[in-house]
Amino acid sequence: MGKIVVDLADIDERFLRNNRVICLFSGGLDGTYLLHHIASVLPSASVLALTIELGGGDGLRAGRVCDRLGFDHLVLDQTDEFLAGYAFPAIAAQAVYLGTHPISASLTRPLMVQVATAVAHEQGYDAVLHTADGTQNSLRRFNQTFAALRFSGSYGSPFAVDAPSREKKLLELADSGLLELVERSRPESARYSTDVNLWCREFEADGLDDPERIDVPEALYEWTTPTATEPVEVEVSFQHGAPVALDGQALSAADLVRSLNALVGAYGLGRYIGLEEIANGQKVQEVREMPAAHLLLDAYRRLEQASVDAATLREKIHLEQIWVHEAVEGRWLGPLRTAAQAFIGSVAQAVSGRVRYRVSGAGLTPRAVIAHNPLYVRDRVEIPQA
């Protein structure tokens, strides 16, 4: 059984000589700093930088850093699997954290670990490292998924305890010439920690943490910059709980989400700010933009109400926060979330039909809810009288 890595001192020359290492790597500041550290400790270390592409476009930026440092780089596109197996089930689960913001990283971490451990087994790597720190719930999401999979190698984050400051990382990477590679495609990366996939853009640090003074620079938002002036109508179709078409045109999961991100985001809709509890009971502020999720979550609930009886819905609503809690706590593979998923997935089989909206700067205005197997009446006079 391998060790659990918790700080940079664990990544010493002995560790690197004895282990072939996978580093989960998006090309950002923390991952680049880790690879730079490894290169400075043992330039000949056997390292695979693994970029798991989830629609955020990380591969190119990550590749530039790996080329500079001379490490092997593998990009695996898991966007379709992420949407179908994680984001779309989250729609059915109405996965909003305590009513404030839809979850995202809770969905990506278990997929990333499952992909990384599969690569480790297939290609003979002994350790898998990530870069979440002690202020981030992703630390236990990553580590608990490794444990649930019974990964026999070493795993963890060298930033789990006593992490170098962001300023220290910036200075060292600037001195090494690596910082400009990090900033080239995302200039905000030096100041902010960003996590981007096709479902969500999330950012933290540098003044975004204070809930008593919320001031998010407008330049941080890319998907929800208001550019549209005239309202439009859009119709989304669901089949057995999954979104499958826009305006009657069948689309792949990625194209559907990408289209809604552009359409809904053009009206400035889909921005979220909320507090999330971390392991020690304290709460940190979360800032994100999720325009497609903004519409899809609302549409699903409306179609679900039209298709499912109230008693079943009441029980499902109770289970939704259990599903969310287990995902947020890193227990995606645990028996409780799995059981909640079974119930929610069963209910989703009845959710088929279409929801139409008028989209404007004022928000989403429902224009039609058309269920395939409706429980509603279209005119009260149709209701039998006792």
Rank of each mutant, 00 (worst) to 15 (best):
D7M: 15
D12W: 05
E13V: 09
L16V: 05
N19A: 14
V21R: 00
G27M: 01
G28K: 06
H36W: 00
L42S: 03
L48N: 08
T51D: 01
G56V: 00
G56K: 06
G59P: 11
R61P: 00
G63I: 06
V65T: 11
C66S: 09
D67L: 14
V75I: 12
V75N: 03
L76E: 02
D77Q: 07
D77F: 00
Q78Y: 09
E81A: 15
F82H: 00
A87P: 05
V96E: 00
Y97I: 14
Y97P: 06
R109C: 12
P110R: 02
M112S: 09
V115M: 06
E122N: 04
E122R: 10
G124S: 09
G124P: 07
L129R: 03
H130M: 11
R141T: 06
F146K: 11
F151T: 05
F159K: 00
A163R: 14
E167K: 04
L171I: 15
L171W: 15
S176C: 06
G177W: 13
R184I: 11
R186Y: 11
S189G: 09
A190E: 12
A190C: 12
R191H: 02
S193I: 06
L198E: 07
W199P: 04
F203Y: 08
E204Q: 13
D210W: 01
D210N: 10
D210C: 07
V216N: 00
V216A: 06
P217R: 07
L220G: 07
T225W: 07
T229R: 12
E230G: 00
P231T: 13
P243M: 02
A245W: 02
A245M: 08
S252F: 09
S252T: 14
R258A: 07
L263W: 12
L263Y: 12
G265W: 01
G270Q: 08
R271P: 01
G274R: 14
E276L: 12
E276Y: 10
R288F: 03
E289L: 06
A293V: 10
L295F: 06
A299P: 13
A306E: 06
V308G: 03
D309Q: 11
A311Q: 09
A311T: 11
E315C: 06
V328S: 05
G330M: 03
R331L: 10
T338M: 15
A342Q: 13
I344S: 02
I344F: 05
G345T: 01
V351E: 08
R354F: 09
V355S: 04
R356I: 04
R356C: 10
V359Q: 06
T365M: 04
I370K: 15
A371Q: 03
V377N: 14
R378W: 13
R380P: 01
